[in-house]
Design a protein around this nucleic acid. Structure first.
Lengths: 352, 352
DNA sequence: GAAATCAATGCAAACGTTTGATATTCTATT
DNA sequence: AATAGAATATCAAACGTTTGCATTGATTTC
């Protein structure tokens, strides 16, 4: 039952195990015939190298950790897929760690990963939503390992970051609503403390300003990133004396709640009301939903994160922290009007 | 930069490293004071046990492999979550491996996992759809490791299986349609070679038979598990001289395509047409979809799989292959009529 | 024909733990 | 005061690799 080792092969071939090791790893300085002989015997005996033993001496495990809040959240599988694809392409395997947005769980995982001597870590910090000091990533600083973080938040800069341009995303979403002719545009955000959320809000504000449209405080509301929250906040907005005729939401899930609320109130979308989400999760594109939204290149984010990480791991070459900013993209579907007003028309309407 | 080891601690405390090891692992035979002293020093020096070295001697890595076709497919994240939750609860970490339904990739992963000396493997075999002999799992037999397989297909029985009762699922889905008063019920399946698919079909047939309803060949079609396929096949069915007034689909994704097609043809659901899916993936419950479907307890499947696996890993106790069958559950939403005909009425209508 | 070169191989240490066998120290008993 | 156990600590082997350095023969060079 005992697995066959390099020594077993050596005994069989009658050579030292150093030779076996070198032969099997295609190291130079081995006679071609011996090499072939060894390969053949290894094959025949069903030899499977022990990566643990190898890891112990080489100090490399060819393993990385992927720490995310929740694989069930439709936002993360695509990222995971991107990470995994490039990892496996380079002979790495990845540990999947769900923190459930929970700092304690994250801590436990981070510890486990380090003990298991992963070569690097890719993480969406739970601290973005949880913990005493939301949004502070400084606790990651003392990980003595290559780390890539999904988030653009400030840090003292020991680790690479990767994110999309949330501000720009908020801007183009709002711009689209304006140009489609909606006049009172609300913002329904997620967790206020979230960096990405506030950037998106900033983008929203910038867009309104740049089109000389009024910024109305009562049209800006935040709660959290769930559908129920979108539903409830929309309910509130509709009660306003002067309710909005469009909304840009912090993410697609919120938008879903919004749509449900609108449907309930028999408000026609997109004719009388426009909705733009954020993220472009899979189901947003399903025929029954067709949500206009800002797409995050999720797969790409995962892919790039893994590439940056592997570079740091193997790269005496490109050392140093790298900050990657990806471009968001407007995906126009059926929850906003096709009809576009020219910029001037907007101004006229607005000022009349 | 070199990480602190057990030897460093021993030197500092002035004892042998055997003592340090025992102290740190709460092994008996250590003086309480020494133990505390050692713990304190370890803490102070920032000691992190090297799981690789430990794994080498204990022959345990506290790591399992999860091999699934595609984490982006909304069916799998929940399973993964179930697996991960119980794994982490027991101090295990899990390798995520996406085979992309590709046998070759699966083989590569299986090899890697074994080399990395995982303690066990949970797998949804790519061979269920790919490879020369679809549905044959015998190639898994020579993995010398605890393995739990998602699938009920035959095997020589070296490994534990876990699945839901697909036949029963097909039965209750069809029964529901019948009792809701639909008369010509079609079946739009996925890959014909798929075990689960054919079981569901059997259930469908049994239901029709047990209600004395005719089995019509032209109403049974199969292609694959994608939305487009559902759309196309529904198109075909509608062209029949005597088209169906309901359909039970091989999974929810197919149902989505069906719904889209019906919408396009302005056929009212559920008034004039009933649809039942299978799986109950997340978005089936979203307000805009509200698909009646057969729920698979995905999270539970993952959870049980992990529990069975961990038992096999640690269990001199419950040795032996275990086969777990989970119950499917009908979730009635908005794509089937609420109205139920009594059983007799069905017969009358059918025979008149 | 001795010295130098070179390819092929072997030796043995190292990686950081765990653990059975053994040695040492302490405590209580006679 | 001697001694049997406990209690505590140490020794050293083992886990399965990789790798720098030394060794061996054979071949080339002068």
């Amino acid at each position: 039952m005992m697995a066959v080792t390099i020594k077993d092969i050596a005994r069989r071939v009658d050579c030292s195990y150093a030779t076996v090791s070198r032969a099997l790893n295609n190291k130079p300085g081995i006679n071609q015939q011996t090499r072939e002989r060894i390969m053949a015997v290894a094959q025949e005996m069903g030899y499977q190298p022990n990566a643990i033993a190898r890891g112990l001496v080489t100090q490399r495990t060819h393993t990385i950790g992927l720490v995310i809040p929740d694989i069930v959240n439709p936002f993360f599988p695509e990222i995971a897929r991107g990470v995994e694809d490039v990892a496996s392409e380079h002979g790495y395997t990845v540990f999947l760690c769900n923190t459930n947005w929970n700092m304690e769980k994250e801590t436990v995982y981070l510890k486990a990963l380090q003990e298991k001597r992963v070569d690097g870590i890719i993480i969406k910090p739970a601290s973005d939503f949880d913990g005493p000091t939301t949004g502070d990533h400084s606790y990651l600083e003392d990980i003595q390992l290559p780390v890539v973080i999904f988030s653009g938040q400030s840090s003292t800069g020991r680790h690479s970051y990767i994110e999309i341009d949330n501000l720009r995303g908020g801007f183009i979403a709002t711009k689209h609503l304006i140009e489609a002719g909606y006049r009172r545009i609300a913002f329904i955000g997620g967790r206020k403390s979230s960096h990405s959320n506030s950037e998106r809000l900033k983008g929203y504000q910038m867009a309104l300003e740049s089109y000389d449209m009024p910024l109305t405080d009562e049209l800006i509301v935040n709660h959290d990133f769930y559908s129920e929250s979108g539903f409830a906040l929309m309910e509130e907005l509709l009660k306003l004396p002067n309710p909005p005729d469009a909304v840009f939401t912090g993410n697609d899930i919120i938008a879903l709640g919004v749509l449900e609320c609108l449907q309930l109130h028999r408000i026609r979308v997109p004719e009388d009301f426009g909705v733009v989400g954020f993220d472009n999760i899979i189901f947003s594109g399903y025929p029954q939903i067709q949500l206009t939204t800002i797409a995050q290149p999720k797969y790409l984010m995962g892919k790039y994160a893994a590439e940056v990480l592997l570079n740091e791991i193997n790269g005496s070459a490109t050392r140093g922290v790298r900050k990657t900013i990806l471009e968001p993209e407007l995906v126009i579907r059926k929850t906003t009007r096709k009809l576009k007003f020219p910029f001037n028309a907007v101004k006229v309407v607005n000022h009349s």
